[in-house]
């Protein structure tokens, strides 16, 4: 993985704790998965590693893992572009169960 990690934001209790109005590069204060109604799931048998899904992901959440391509579900918004653009039909969109965060 080569992505910034999330630092949960601590709400300041005093004026002096408020960060400068200059944000540091790559600071993430929360995750995005509340956007999602369905999640991409890889069929590693069908995937040939062409990386088309990786190239079209607006979020940058697809990465090479130990057992093939993986998805960072903390930041995937479930748009489904990856599944639609995969020529080998190796990705299926599975509806999320229950309430989202």
């Amino acid at each position: 993985m080569n992505r910034p990690s999330t630092v949960r934001y601590q709400y300041p209790k005093a004026l002096s704790e408020i960060p400068l109005p200059i944000a540091q590069a790559g600071v993430l204060i929360d995750i995005n998965s509340g956007f999602r109604t369905s999640r991409p799931v890889f069929d590693h048998e069908k995937c040939v590693g062409c990386m088309s899904c990786y190239a079209v992901c607006p979020e940058g959440t697809i990465y090479r893992g130990e057992s093939g391509l993986q998805v960072d579900y903390d930041f995937c918004k479930g748009c489904g572009i990856c599944a639609k653009e995969c020529r080998f039909k190796a990705i299926s969109m599975v509806p999320e169960e229950g309430e989202n965060e």
Binding site: R3, P4, G26, L28, E59, G60, K77, C79
Partner: peptide
């Protein structure tokens, strides 16, 4: 990833 974790609409 140099543009990551943004709040754009899905897709």
């Amino acid at each position: 990833e140099l543009f990551f974790g943004h709040k754009a609409c899905p897709g």
